[in-house]
Amino acid sequence: MTDLTDQVAIVTGASRGIGRATALLLALQGAKVVAVARSAEELEELNTKTQGLAIPADVADEADADHVVAETLSRFGRLDILVCNAGVGSFNLLENMESAEWDRIFDVNVKGTFLMCKAVVPHFKAQGHGHVVAIASDVARRTFEHGTVYGASKSAQDALLGSLRKEVRPHGVKVSTIYPGLVDTYFNESKPGGVEAEKTHLKPSDVAQAVRYVLEAPAHVVVDELMLHPITQEW
């Protein structure tokens, strides 16, 4: 298994939910975690536990994405892992969605993934290794009512990652995509009916363990895609 000790990992959307759980778990495994989110206060609280680096940033802003990578390299002198977790959603009938919501969701879910990958990939290729792990969603592979815009963004993100995977593999760089089902986080508050307190929902820690699983796979093992089922918690 790959040892995560002293590996440097950027985790976006780290202030809450899946991102926070992932940052905490990677730090526990010995990684140096660079936590990225827009909330400086929540990041600083997290950083007291991870003892890494907290960088308030908007992943949909190219200057911010470049700044995150530059600060990481300046602080630690290396970069091994990018966890693209930042995401937003809004759930409504198509005719009730505003174009501004389309822009916001695609900016974070698709453009944010694009910009963060664009910032790290040249470094990964130059050093001959690196691992991008993206938290997508099972809705990239299925559709549901009220999910037109969010589902479209996740399908676009999925296509981006699939193409990137083929581009970087000859350079020793891995790209893994995780597709969680329903996860018990604040994210559900924006869904019709509010928070669903289903015992069958995944926990943020379940997704964090899936991230750890793909990162710790032996160097010769490539986990391209990992579907995480909420009922059985199997992956």
Rank of each mutant, 00 (worst) to 15 (best):
A119R: 07
E167K: 02
T12D: 12
E98Q: 15
Q51G: 02
W102L: 06
G89D: 10
P180A: 09
T185F: 02
A9H: 01
V83M: 11
T185L: 00
W235N: 09
A119V: 07
F76K: 10
E216K: 04
G172C: 13
K191F: 10
A134L: 04
K32P: 01
D184F: 12
A9V: 03
K199Q: 12
V11Y: 14
L164Q: 13
S15R: 11
D138P: 00
A14C: 06
G13V: 06
V36Q: 04
Q233K: 15
A57Q: 07
R75D: 14
V69S: 04
S155W: 12
S163L: 13
D61S: 15
A60Q: 12
D138R: 12
Y179Q: 08
E45I: 03
V214F: 07
V222S: 13
L226C: 11
T12V: 06
G151H: 07
V108R: 01
A126L: 02
V110Q: 11
G89N: 07
A156I: 01
L43T: 00
I55D: 05
R20V: 00
Q157V: 06
E196N: 10
T200V: 09
L94S: 13
D80F: 04
F144G: 02
K49I: 03
I178C: 05
L161N: 12
D224N: 14
V168R: 07
T185I: 00
L161V: 09
T2S: 10
D103Q: 15
T232Y: 13
V207C: 03
H131A: 01
S176V: 08
V168L: 03
A136T: 15
V36R: 05
T72F: 14
K199Y: 03
Y150D: 06
L43H: 08
D6S: 13
Q157N: 14
M227C: 05
L4G: 03
L182G: 09
H171F: 14
S176Q: 14
I81T: 05
L94Y: 07
P170L: 03
V108E: 09
A156G: 03
N85A: 04
Y186G: 00
A31G: 11
D64M: 00
R75W: 10
H201Q: 08
V133T: 06
R141F: 04
